[in-house]
Design a binder for these strands. Structure first.
Length: 554
RNA sequence: UGGGGUAUCGCCAAGCGGUAAGGCAAUGGACUCUGACUCCAUCAUUCGAAGGUUCGAAUCCUUCUACCCUAGCCA
């Protein structure tokens, strides 16, 4: 109970940002009545990544906060880059994150309306058909410091423009032959206002509208119309569109829209050790550097999901990073904190020895075995206990032994006594080495009086370590994922060649039939999750969650 | 070099004229059947810099500096 109250209080505190301040003012001024309507408008040209998650959370939770609505809209105005595979994955990812859209829409279904609007602009003498080539248009645009030059086609008559534009629609011209341009100001210091192109010709099949259209609207023209049609009040996008806002407003003003939506920009997410560029991620997929868009090393929602991230953890992360207009680079440690935070209370714990060292309990009877009870969760008693075999020969983590202990090392070393989790106090008596001098086995003794649960309190030990029973242990494969990207010696971010390692580990038998979706936290080594893509493998493969918080002080 | 933005602790980030929230990270300590978790403590006399206004400024004014975006028939 107290926990719940605490959680709510935290959410209360962190759930305000500058966008909310803007909305509060709009509500106060009744700019849009009491309406708050947002939208998440991805272009279906790739998979969603953690950066999109920030935008998704922002849009959906903002709507929730004000009892408003939020649409999922595919901004599919450029058929050359888009694909239905992407719309499916995007839908799945948004749902998985736990959000429900008011409507699922496609910008392409507004093409008729957008065409009508373009005709209206032409009739108002605010748009014209231009025959300049791409190269010529570029030259006429001017530079950052020099004004542009007007197109020779700028002063065509309304009638001629109407006819030409109609012909463009009919597919009478080749790609690039003509464009429709907004007639604004070639001398504007804002290059976006120098008669921007609003329609281009493209004889290409669209994933949604097929071959109905041979002209497609440009983002700057289409987006405000999409927002306006849907009754969006606050159109939230990223910082690089700030310079486009005058054009966004121009389109809606020219089209004489009542209660036009307003564009608000925020800084996109950057994460340390993470590449967020869709283009780059696509290249990794295409050249086979990763298994696919859902490779667990990818920062995609699908990759994070496969890696073991929960939607709760991702949403918590998005809440914690906040929203502002300052370019920032968020430490990935925060994301890792969020998954640990979420998993620590819901994941069950299991003992797994990743790098085994054999231990023989010399005073434990041969051919004898016993069962000990170990709790499944440290945090949640309701998760119960399980029986684990304990016998004469066991494996412990090599790290848990040090022949010559450093200060403050209180695990196994010759002569030291430690607790074996859930079992007995064990004292290391002897070290067995091979010819090369490598430690290959520890000879230990146990104290029968110290069994867990016996109530023994004769003495205490400083260390507790995990173990697996040699006879009953199962071998599992651990796939350990490091950061996909690392910095090289020059400070350049490059692909990490060691981003994925596969190795065998010994696990207690309860992991043998672990099913997809079951979450496990392995003792001391961090948090792991069953790989949902490998449900029927004989050997279960586990993905290592990022954010291993090794407590070892070396 | 034009235009548009942003500058508050190592990383995010509140603050909106009344005397610097919070989280992550870090550090010390307590606790512990793992050193995890939890807990407790420490962590910006100072808000990019310099001036100015004011009883009072991170918040207002001036000047300067740094960084980001911007010259696709991409979004």
């Amino acid at each position: 109970m107290a926990d719940i109250e605490k959680t709510e209080a935290v959410n209360e505190q962190t759930s305000s940002n500058f966008i909310h301040n803007i909305i509060d003012k709009d509500l106060e001024n009744q700019t849009y009545g009491n309406r708050v309507y947002t939208r998440f408008p991805p272009e279906p040209n790739g998979y969603l990544h953690i950066g999109h998650a920030k935008s998704i959370c922002l849009n959906f939770t903002t709507a929730q906060k004000y009892n408003g609505k939020c649409n999922l809209r595919f901004d599919d105005t450029n058929p050359v880059k888009e694909d239905t595979e992407y719309v499916e994955s995007i839908e799945a990812d948004v749902k998985w994150l736990g959000f429900q859209w008011e409507k699922l829409l496609f910008a392409s279904s507004y093409f008729d309306k957008m065409y009508e609007c373009a005709v209206m602009l032409i009739k108002k003498n605010s748009a014209y058909v231009c025959d300049l080539s791409a190269e010529e248009i570029k030259r006429h645009r001017g530079t950052l410091t020099e004004p542009g030059k007007e197109s020779p086609y700028r002063n065509r008559s309304v009638e001629e423009n109407l006819e030409l534009f109609e012909n463009m629609r009919k597919g009478l011209y080749k790609d690039g032959e003509k464009v429709l341009r907004a007639k604004i100001d070639m001398a504007s210091p804002n290059i976006n206002m120098r008669d921007p192109i609003i329609y281009r010709i493209a004889h290409i099949e669209h994933h949604n509208t097929g071959d109905k259209w041979s002209i497609y609207p440009m983002y700057d023209y289409a987006h405000p119309i999409e927002d306006a049609i849907e009754g969006i009040t606050h159109s939230i996008c990223t910082l690089e569109f700030e310079d486009h806002r005058p054009l966004y407003d121009w389109v809606l003003r020219e089209l004489e829209w009542d209660e036009p939506p307003q564009q608000i920009e925020f800084a996109r997410l950057n994460l340390t050790n993470t590449v967020m560029s869709k283009r780059y991620l696509k290249a990794l997929v295409d050249d086979g550097s990763v298994e696919g868009w859902d490779d667990p090393r990818m920062p995609t929602i699908a990759g994070l999901r496969r890696r073991g991230y929960t939607p709760e953890a991702i949403r918590d992360f998005c809440e914690r990073i906040g929203v502002s207009k300052a370019n920032s680079l968020v430490d990935i440690a925060l994301l890792e904190h969020c998954i640990r935070e979420d998993l620590k209370s819901r994941a069950e714990t299991r003992m797994v020895v990743m790098n085994p060292l054999k231990v023989v309990i010399t005073n434990y009877p041969e051919n004898s075995t016993e069962e000990v009870d170990i709790e499944n969760s440290k945090e949640d008693e309701a998760k119960g206990t399980r029986k684990v075999q304990f016998s004469r020969e066991l494996y412990v983590e090599r790290d848990d032994f040090m022949e010559i202990p450093e200060k403050k090392y209180f695990r196994l070393f010759p002569g030291n006594e430690v607790r074996f989790k859930g079992a007995y106090f064990i004292t290391c008596q002897d070290v067995v080495k091979d010819e090369a001098g490598n430690v290959i086995e520890l000879r230990c003794t146990y104290d029968p009086e110290t069994r867990s649960g016996s109530g023994f309190d004769g003495r205490k030990v400083k260390g507790t370590i995990h173990w697996v029973d040699a006879k009953t242990a199962v071998k599992i494969k651990i796939r350990s994922y490091g950061y996909l990207m690392i910095e090289d010696e020059n400070g350049e971010t490059v692909l990490n060649p060691d981003s994925m390692k596969v190795f065998e580990a010994y696990a207690e038998p309860s992991l043998k039939d672990a099913d997809a979706g079951e979450r496990y936290q392995f003792f001391r080594h961090g948090y792991y999750i069953a790989d949902e893509h490998l449900t029927n493998e004989t050997e279960k493969v586990f993905n290592q969650i990022v954010g291993l918080k090794s407590s070892w002080k070396k």
